[in-house]
Computed example of a mutant assay.
Amino acid sequence: MSYFSMNTWSIHRHLGPLRWTVWNEEEKRHDTHVDPQPETTTLLELPAVLAEKGFGAVDVCHFHIPRTDAEYLVELREAFRSSGVAFHTLLLDYGDISSSDELRRASDMALAKEWIGIAAQAGAGHIRIIAGQAQPDSAEALERAYESLAELAAWAEKHGVRIVTENFRPLASTSANCLAIKSRLGDAIGLIGDFGNFVKEVRREELAAILPFCGSVHAKPEFDVEGRPIEAEFRDLLQLLPDSGYDGPITLIYDGPGDMWEGVERVRAIAKDYV
């Protein structure tokens, strides 16, 4: 049965600094760029807040995790356990495991393995790995993505975490490539379907194609200038969930102006008719 989850991006103006991972091409290494943001709720406090608001799970963007030492990750795991809110997916928001640059690919694979360990320590059930940054018509990049995802899936299994990928970034920006990845790797990896990541002109058809294979969805509508969801379009996409037999978490995303918690509730007010 479906239930509500939330993506931490929905309240990114409440959770403190964003710690973006970037590739330093000149130095051939990973750097972290810090984007200051207010912190009205800590990540350790968030599970209890979400429980009070009736959410069953959360997807956490990796740049919202302020520390990765063992002591902090144990605290985070306990915060989720005591709240009853599941840490569903750690969203690794960086990486190009399909890169033709062997050094870059090896570095990004090593970083992904590091974050798999972090996900395991924090109690996440899944970790989202980006399939690649290459254009979707690159057969060579897709082949490298198959190999990399298979390697990471085997690594994650040893840590009790499941690899998922998403229709996110160029390589997986078509349903054909998402389905090719699932066909090649089968149950070794899962799939997230994001409402907002396919090209708008074919969004409905592309999303309908992958939903039967998705274990979770990111329900992200488009918004008007005041932060109100474009309701008719959002409902059209939400209707695909029961039509496809989808019964996993519906992860709400608000990405508009104003108070973000209020924005989340505007999204939920529409999506509740499909749970």
Rank of each mutant, 00 (worst) to 15 (best):
S2D: 02
S5H: 03
N7R: 06
W9G: 00
I11R: 00
L15Y: 02
P17I: 04
R19M: 12
T21N: 00
D31F: 04
P36L: 12
P36A: 13
L43K: 01
P47D: 15
V49P: 05
K53V: 07
A57K: 05
V58G: 00
V58R: 08
R67H: 14
T68E: 11
Y72A: 15
L73K: 03
E75F: 05
E75N: 08
E78D: 15
R81A: 15
S83D: 09
V85C: 08
F87A: 08
D93H: 07
D101N: 12
E102S: 07
R105D: 00
R105G: 01
S107R: 14
A110F: 03
A112M: 01
K113P: 05
A119M: 11
G123N: 12
R128W: 04
A134E: 13
Q135Y: 05
Q135W: 01
P136E: 01
E140W: 01
A141R: 02
L142M: 14
L149E: 01
A150H: 07
A154C: 07
K158Q: 14
F168E: 08
P170S: 06
A172Y: 07
S175W: 00
A176D: 09
I181T: 00
K182N: 06
G186Y: 02
G190L: 07
G190N: 10
L191Q: 06
F195I: 04
N197W: 00
R203G: 09
R204G: 01
E205Y: 12
A209W: 09
L211Y: 08
K220L: 10
P221F: 12
E222F: 04
G227V: 04
P229W: 08
E231T: 05
E233Q: 15
P242H: 14
D243K: 13
Y246T: 14
P249G: 09
T251V: 14
M260E: 15
V267T: 03
A269Y: 10
I270G: 12
K272E: 13
Y274E: 00
